[in-house]
Amino acid sequence: MSVLEFQLSDLSFAIDISVGHLMHFTVVEEGRLLSPLHRAPWVDDPDAVFEETTPANVRRLSGDFFCAPFGRNDVEPGPTHGWPANSAWSHSGTEESEDRLTAVFTLERTVMGATVEKRLTLRAGHPFLYQEHRLSGGEGAISVAHHVMVRMEAGGRLAVSPKAFACTPDEALEPDAARGRSILAYPAEASDLRSFPLADGDTADLGQFPPGEFHEDFVTLVEAPTDGPGAAPGWSVVSRNTEQDRVLVLKNAAELPVTMLWMSNGGRDYAPWSGRHTGVLGIEDGRASGAGHADSVRQNRLNARGFPTAYALSEDHCVSIRQAIGACSMDENEGDVADLSTASGCVTLRFVTGREKTLRFDEEFLAGA
Score class of each variant (00 low, 15 high):
S87V: 06
G113L: 11
G93V: 09
T110S: 04
S143I: 01
G156T: 05
G71S: 05
T115K: 12
R100T: 07
L101C: 02
L158K: 08
G93R: 08
D64V: 04
S92F: 14
W89I: 06
H133M: 10
G156A: 03
P79W: 09
Y130I: 02
T110D: 07
R157T: 14
R157W: 14
V150C: 02
S161W: 00
E132G: 04
W83F: 15
V104F: 00
T115L: 05
V150G: 02
H133T: 12
S92G: 14
T121R: 04
E132L: 03
T94F: 15
G140M: 09
M152E: 11
E76Q: 10
S92M: 15
A88H: 13
R72T: 07
E95M: 12
V116D: 02
E96C: 12
N86M: 05
F70A: 14
E95F: 12
S97V: 14
N73V: 06
S136Y: 05
E76T: 13
D74L: 01
G156V: 00
N86L: 03
T106L: 04
A145W: 00
R72K: 12
L122K: 00
V116T: 07
G138F: 08
G138S: 10
H91W: 13
M152D: 03
G78F: 10
R100M: 02
G156R: 01
S62V: 09
R151L: 04
G156N: 06
P77E: 03
H81L: 11
